[in-house]
Amino acid sequence: MSNFNVFDVAGSGMSAQQIRLNTTASNIANADSVSSSEGKTYRAREPVFAAMLTDSENEFSDPQAQLPGVSVLGIVERGTPLRAEYKPDHPQADKDGYIHLPNVNIMEEMANMISASRSYQTNADVMNTAKTLMQKTMMLGE
C-alpha cells in the first residue's frame, strides 16, 4: 500500500534533520574551544543531504519503493579558515603568542538550527496527517 511510504519518507526527513540539529549543537557547543595548534582546532561540521535513488536491483521486487526520501551522505568539515587571535598570556597560546579558534559562525548556526527545526516540524505534521487519513480509511463503514 502506497500510503505506508509516507511514513518512510517523512521518517527519513526527520532523521536527516535530527542529524543536522546534532551537528549544529556540536558546532555551537564548540564555538569557543580554544586550541594551541591549527591541527587540533575544532572545525564546524555539516551534513550533506541527497535524495535517495531507487536501487536498480530491487526495482522489480519492490515497485512501491519509488519515493524513498532523504539520505545523509556524510558529515563534512567546513572549509572556511580558522580564526587566530594574538593572546600571549593565554595558557593555550603557541610559541608566537597565538590561540586558534574554530571556524564556527554562531549566527549561521542559529539560522541552521531554526531551519532544521522547522523542517523537522513539517515532516512530523506530514506524518500526523498521513496517520489520521489512514485511520479514517481503516474506519470506513463504521
Partner: peptide, 24 residues
Amino acid sequence: ALKIREARQSILANNLANVDTPNY
C-alpha cells in the same frame, strides 16, 4: 480518486522531506 490522492500525498511528502536537499 483515493488511489491518486494517496500517491500524490507520497509525492508531496517526498518534496517536503527533501526541502534542504541540494539539486532536488
